[in-house]
Amino acid sequence: MDEKIRHILEILENDARASPDEIAALTDMTAQEVSQAIAKLEETGVIRHYKTIIDWDLVGENYVYAVIELKVTLERNQGYQVIAERIYKFPEVRSVRLLSGDYDISLTVRGKSMKDVAFFVAEKIATLDQVQNTATHFVLKTYKEDGVILHEPEAIKRLPVSL
C-alpha cells in the first residue's frame, strides 16, 4: 500500500470529519490531491461508510443492546450468506458476523427495551427455519466501541519542559 494512502486511511479511521485541507497538512499533499485520493477510495469501496460513535445514554436515550449467538443448519444449496442476508435486513440488527467455534453467527441487536429485544429475537430470529437455537446476552455497559474508549480516565500530566 502507498504510504500516503495509509496515512489518509488512518486519519479518517480516527476522525471521519477530517477535511481535505487538514489531511493535506498532515501528509505533505495538496487538498486537491487528498480529495482525489479519497474519491477513489470511496469509489473502489475501500472506504465503506463514515459513521459517528454516539453515547446515547448521555441524552437520555437508553437503548438496550444484546449480543445474540445463533446456531444454524445449512440447507441444500445455501451457504451462510443467505441466512446472513435474511438477518441483516432487519434494522434492529446492528452487526452480523460469521464465527468459528461453538456458534455460527453472532448478531448485535439494538432495541428500546429488553422486552423489545427479547420479542424481536423470539419472533423474527428464532423462528427462521435455519436457526437451531439462540442465546441472548444483554449488554450491561460498553467500555470501548470500535476502538474508541467511551469513558476515558483522566490523562496523565507530563512536565511542560524536559531535555
Binding site: R158, L159, P160, V161, S162, L163
Partner: peptide, 9 residues
C-alpha cells in the same frame, strides 16, 4: 493555559 512544545518525550 500553557501549550508546550518544550517536551523531549
Amino acid at each position: 493555559d500553557v501549550i508546550s512544545l518544550g517536551v523531549g518525550e
